[in-house]
Amino acid sequence: MIRIAAVGDVHLGADARGRMRPALENVGEHADVLLLAGDLTRHGTLDEAQVVAEEFADLPVPVVAVLGNHDHHDDKPVEVARLLSDSGLHVLEGDAVVFEVGGERIGVAGVKGFGGGFAGKCGSNFGEREMKAFVGHTIEIAETLRAVLASIEADVRVALTHYSPVPDTLRGEPPEIYPFLGSYLLGEAIDATGTDLAIHGHAHFGTEQGMTPGGVRVRNVAQPIIRSAYTVYHVEPMVRAAVAG
């Protein structure tokens, strides 16, 4: 059994420095790995990224993160990711990490994701350049996610995104804004690759639990939803084998 701690949308800045640290220092008692589902900062500045780095550095378990839209706001996503990587976090954008925990391997593939909407109610890669850029960004990210998930060799495979792969976990948000909260293309990539669990954030007013059309568990771990420093999932490696068999 692998214990996965996860939280998204911590939106840290200098004013919130150190708030999470006491609970984080005990994360090893709850989990084997900690996943951060984006929106680590408020504006994506390097000063805020430094606060994030201090909060999540030197923890007893590996920390794996993707960036969110807020972490892009200052147009320095590469620098923010580098600063966090230099502090020992694994920042993913179109790549994966695999850890061994008690003889079992957990692989995490991470992308930010993007919007577009869900089957039958989504944008199309058509028309104005701006529209094609919007939908094209999601298509590109979903293709990357699919390739990275497929490449992982592990007993438990997790997809980590900021945007949602399903509408289920958005319940509580106005339906009119679903196209800005996620895309079915992410869900399709998850379903095509035998993934065990999908973790995302971004929808602060959504709900925690959902499922892809292919039966993969989805969890929205935005901090306002989980109401704690992080939440913990225990995943049995045989889940996928049992379903597939």
Binding site: Q223, R227, S228, A229, T231, M238, V239
Partner: peptide, 14 residues
């Protein structure tokens, strides 16, 4: 103000 307490319990996914 969002809680940053340690989680109570965990969810079993099987």
């Amino acid at each position: 103000v969002v809680s940053v307490a340690e989680p109570e319990g965990s969810e079993e996914l099987r």
